[in-house]
């Protein structure tokens, strides 16, 4: 087994007649958590959609464990990788039905009812994500955080080796953000699940990811460990805002602080007065 699990090599893709991503190379080690960061409109989602095969490939390759991901049959692919996208539409079904849909790639050709194994696996992941007590609730009646957990449970029911998430913590409060990312970290350690996520929050990215790829203007600006990527020079250049970075006293990971225009002005005035 190679240590590189997902190998994205000189991969370029884009929207027909629209935004184009310049060639990206990125390799994920098995059992790592990788974050794609970058400002709005930088191409994070384009890269994400390119990897999962929703956009036309322009060049390069995406290999998953040595197999060309873009040419694997769709059903086989659904057993290898699961995708959690941002959930905004209403879906009228119970949590359990929703999680059980994740078993679909594993269904036999003429399977009509959910097998005992399907039910067991769905139950297991509902327990793991902590939505088991809501199993008979309608999905629309859950809070945003619970829905996101249910979506992760559904993705895990696919029993994938690679989990892709598009902004899993967007619009959640810090307790749910922590709950979801700690869960991902736990799964990552226990199941050796490789995780790739698009994430907006730089501090969460720093705290939870092993490897970061910073995208800007349709190409990779820099990539490496959080310590290598998240320094104020890179951030100020890519995000065009003033920040200060420090080190988290417990985890030792970089922390990013925003600095408001007003404080900047005050500081300048103070300096002059001194």
């Amino acid at each position: 087994m190679t240590s590189t699990f997902l190998d994205i090599h000189d991969f370029a893709c884009g929207y027909p007649g629209g935004f184009q991503l310049k060639p990206v190379s990125l390799s994920l080690k098995k059992g790592s958590i990788t974050g794609i960061i970058g400002p709005n409109g930088s191409g994070k989602t384009t890269l994400f959609r390119g990897i999962i095969g929703e956009l036309q490939k322009k060049s390069g390759s995406v290999l998953l464990g040595g197999q060309d991901l873009l040419s694997i049959h769709r059903k086989e692919k659904a057993k290898l990788l699961a995708i959690v996208t941002q959930d905004t539409e209403s879906i009228g079904m119970t949590v359990e039905e929703y999680v059980l849909l994740g078993r679909m790639p594993h269904h036999k050709s003429w399977q009509f009812f959910d097998s005992a194994e399907d039910l067991e696996i769905a139950e297991h992941y509902m327990k793991l994500t902590g939505v088991i007590h809501k199993r008979d609730k309608q999905l629309d009646h859950l809070s945003g955080g619970e829905r996101q957990l249910a979506a992760i449970a559904r993705a895990l029911a696919q029993e994938p080796t690679l989990l892709l998430l598009d902004e899993p913590t967007a619009s959640l409060d810090i307790s749910h953000q922590g709950q979801i990312l700690n869960l991902l970290q736990k799964l990552n350690q226990e199941l050796e699940l490789t995780v790739l996520m698009v994430i907006h929050d730089l501090n969460l990215a720093s705290e939870y990811c092993d490897f970061l790829s910073m995208i800007s203007g349709g190409k990779v600006y820099t990539q490496g460990t959080p310590e290598q990527v998240l320094n104020y020079q890179n951030i100020e250049k890519v995000y065009k805002s003033v920040v200060v970075t420090r080190t988290n006293p417990i985890s030792g990971k970089p922390v990013v602080f925003m600095v408001s225009q007003k404080s900047l002005n005050n500081k300048a005035i103070n300096k002059v007065n001194k």
Binding site: I52, R74, G102
Partner: peptide
Amino acid sequence: FVRPLNALRLGESRAKHLGIN
């Protein structure tokens, strides 16, 4: 086509992610 119909309840792209044509 009962399986595609069930998966399409999640929306077209999520049905694709579940391996549905």
